[in-house]
Design a protein around this nucleic acid. Sequence first.
RNA 1: GCGCUCGUAGCUCAAUGGUAGAGCGAGGGCCUUUUAAGCCCGAGGUUGUGGGUUCGAGCCCCACCGAGCGCACCA
Length: 528
Amino acid sequence: MSEEREGLTPPVPGWPEESAIRLQKAEGLRAAGVEPYPNRFVRSHSLAEVAAAWGARTAEQLESEPATVQVAGRVMLLRPMGKASFATLSDGEGTLQLYIRKDEVGEDAFKLLGLVDRGDFVGASGTVMKTRTGELSVKAKTLTFLSKALLPPPEKWHGLTDMEVRYRQRYVDLLSNPEVRKAFVTRSRMVGEIRRLMDERRFVEVETPMMHPIPGGALARPFVTHHNALDVDLFMRIAPELYLKRLVVGGLERVYEINRNFRNEGLSANHNPEFTMLEFYAAYFDCRDVIDMTEALIAGAAAKVAGDQPLPFRGREVSLRAPFARVRMNDAIANAFASDPAAGFTPDSLDDEAQLDAYVRSEAFAGACRRAEVDRDGYLALSHGKRIAQLFGDFAEKSLWAPTFVIDYPVEISPLSKRRADDKGVADRFELFMCGMEVANGFSELNDPLEQRERFLDQVRQRAGGDGEAHLMDEDYIRALGHGMPPTGGCGVGIDRLAMILTNSPSIRDVILFPHMRPEAGRKPPAV
RNA sequence: GCGCUCGUAGCUCAAUGGUAGAGCGAGGGCCUUUUAAGCCCGAGGUUGUGGGUUCGAGCCCCACCGAGCGCACCA
């Protein structure tokens, strides 16, 4: 036999030798008049449906009232035992055992069973039964070959663990690791529940451009692409915000979009270059209404798909039950420095520019930075508002594990947000943090066209000063506000990060089916 | 971008600087209620790539490719 196997060449360069053996089996099927890739097979039940309908019956009941079914699936395990075989089928949703006896299916069909490998798809019709050990099975009367897998599946016990292969070849990951499928189904249900909650509140789902002539709505670097016919550069959107607010101007008072954003930044456990955001805008909402709605959406979706109890995440637990904590940014910072008497600032004194400047330059602050492994020198070049935001990010944000709305942001880093009516020094804005991640960002939308224009001009000056993430001037957006936008509140929610928490996935790559990776070595990009 | 760790058979993993192994899978044989079925036999490798050190390198050094984690930037 080994002589026969000599010179076996895989059908595709680089494929393992086993693929050549599997191809021979496919040809063996053809030689016996069996099509290895037939067009159609009609199932009477999915595998889970068989279990649901007959799983509770006893072997005797199944024998006295025989039920005939037609099932199909991928062969996950094969246990051949001479003149009988057991096969475990999976259709992704459920599994079911096939019991194949030579004296039931006939000699020819049983011989063809020898050409079936793990990974192949087969169909069977037969009667539902229970084995001696009580496992629900289908005793096959006829077998139908449905599809040949030329490549061998991963090892049956350990499955596929190589992270690189799991992400690059997600199809293999999905077929060999059931919990992966579960995470993505949960993600889908979560998005479905969010849509239902939005629809229930009479929000209209819309789609706005993914390619923007002026990237806007967030402070981030965009991807650049080019439109040949128009001969203009376009930018993959970093946020849909400015388009959605144009719709509010036009009278779509409640709009939302669940779609991808693209930001040209590093990859990490919390960052993928393209990620999914829910953004919603509602006329006559202010920041507080938006907070309430965001809380209801997240708590509601979590309760629906993951239950109302605390969820495990990154070795800890988190409860997404409402109400979430609320804290002013200055309070969070002062709290983070409470054990450091040298800091000596109170929430109010943080607003004192001269005092904060003195502290930032002090040896005490340099020591605090060393302890927190934070770059102190970076603070020296920052303006007051950015220092506040940086202090929060460096010293307070990481400790926010339970869901917490942080409010009262510096206006300077909030160019699209209204000021608080009762405190013009801060933006009427919040961000929601949980599990050390930012999950949502919302505010009372700035609708004064002339103040918006001034804010843009200020951003343009910062950009000229070297800030590549500062906002660009968008004259059409100013023109839209010029037609009048009602008082409006809006919010963006990071869908991937929420999905991470609801599926106990430590990396964003575990909730994105095809996360971005470097191109595989040796594969040249196609000529365009 | 920087730092640390990793890359060995189709898969999961071993191997003091001294003959590259095991389990699963695949191949041959036995087996009509198995459960990661079992038993017997034989096969399977350019140790990510390219250099270097050494009598001798999977192991040590350098570069490159890819991945994981951490930092930085961000949501």
